[in-house]
Simulated assay, not measured.
Amino acid sequence: MRISYKKLWKMLIDREMKKKDLAELAEISTTSIAKLGRNENVNTDILLKICRALKCDISEIMEIVRIEE
């Protein structure tokens, strides 16, 4: 299984926001945004900052995806 942040990117598109806007609003680094873009693990605090900034639940920005073997 792996983590996918496709929901987050769709939400940004729907809200007409850029990744840079999210970084500023949530007060997170561009390095964290880059990790999210590569579906890498990030600290839970980063995810909570994003949820607070976007006023959403964590399930609205990420999901666990099964990898077919």
Rank of each mutant, 00 (worst) to 15 (best):
M1Q: 09
M1N: 06
M1G: 13
I3M: 03
I3G: 00
I3H: 00
I3R: 02
S4I: 03
S4E: 12
Y5W: 09
Y5N: 06
Y5L: 07
K7Y: 10
L8A: 03
L8Q: 03
W9I: 13
W9H: 10
K10H: 14
K10C: 13
K10S: 15
M11L: 15
M11W: 12
L12E: 06
L12N: 09
L12C: 11
E16H: 15
E16K: 15
E16R: 15
E16F: 09
E16L: 11
M17P: 03
D21R: 04
D21P: 05
L22E: 00
L22T: 00
L22C: 00
A23Q: 05
A23L: 06
E24Q: 12
I28L: 10
S29C: 03
S29L: 02
T30K: 10
T31G: 12
S32R: 04
S32P: 01
I33E: 00
I33L: 00
L36C: 01
L36V: 01
G37L: 03
G37F: 04
R38K: 12
R38Q: 10
N39H: 08
N39I: 07
N39S: 12
N39M: 06
N39E: 07
N39Q: 06
N39C: 08
V42I: 08
V42N: 02
N43I: 06
N43P: 01
N43A: 14
D45M: 12
I46C: 13
I46A: 08
I46F: 06
I46N: 09
I46V: 15
L47K: 09
L48E: 15
L48H: 14
C51G: 09
C51D: 09
C51W: 04
R52M: 12
A53I: 05
A53H: 04
A53W: 03
A53E: 05
A53N: 05
L54A: 08
K55V: 05
K55N: 15
C56V: 15
C56I: 14
C56T: 15
I58T: 04
S59H: 09
I61F: 04
I61P: 01
M62C: 13
M62V: 11
E63M: 03
V65A: 08
R66H: 12
I67S: 11
I67C: 09
E68M: 12
E68K: 14
E69H: 10
